[in-house]
Amino acid sequence: MNNWLKAKKAMPLVWMITGTVAFTLAWQMMARVYGPLLVATPAETLESAVRLFTSPPAVAAFSRTLGRVLLALGLQIMAGLAFGLLAGFYPWVEDLFKPAVSILVAVPPVALALFVIFVFGGGERQVVAAAVALGFPLLYGGAVTAVRSVDRGLLEMLRVFRVPKATQLLAAYVPATLYSLLPSILLAAGLTVRLLIMAEVIVGVDRGIGQALSQARVHMATAEIFAWMLVMAATVLLIEGVMLYLVKSHVLAWQARR
């Protein structure tokens, strides 16, 4: 049942270090072969990353984007859960939403970003909205499946004991759904970071990693682009790690100990 908790176990430290070292060596070689303009060396990248964290505008851009990511993620979870529960309860609601969700899944995200510019103009709220819309199907679909797979025995129990509907929702449906939705929520974290930065770049919103990246590109600052990529990978890992930590301590409270 909690395979994903196990799957997120730390891998053997030796291999992690070996993997990272081998990756860095390969990268270094690439940088040697192609030169610093095309591929920044690991050292340059690290240096650039350190510089990012000591330069106020870069830190501001980072925190700005992080704030948007967290906002988008929060909205996604709430919307996904609310609509997912609804559609899980009522198949006709699922049918009703299906075309819209299919479109959101099928449309190239860049095209949706362009759509946003055309219809709503550029701006911070539009960027967040685009990220929410694009990330929504993942959590929504997860929630629908989760609601449908809530233990039927428990549901019969709630009905027999005439537990009020509101309590049923809060005490049974929401925890059960949230719990089986957790792996999707972790995926959504990484997805949202990527979608949001994409939207920032395409929509061209002020301040944020998207703008910093566009500028770095204009200046051909390869090391800086690499550094941002590193920072973003670290951010995704960090968000996942924090969520996993919060979840683990909470979920493990009621789970069997091994």
């Binding site: 930065i197 990529m229 973003m232 995704v236």
Partner: peptide, 11 residues
């Protein structure tokens, strides 16, 4: 898996 495709496109 964690890099936004737009960034990789730039590179």
């Amino acid at each position: 898996l964690s890099s936004p495709a737009v960034v990789v496109v730039m590179l």
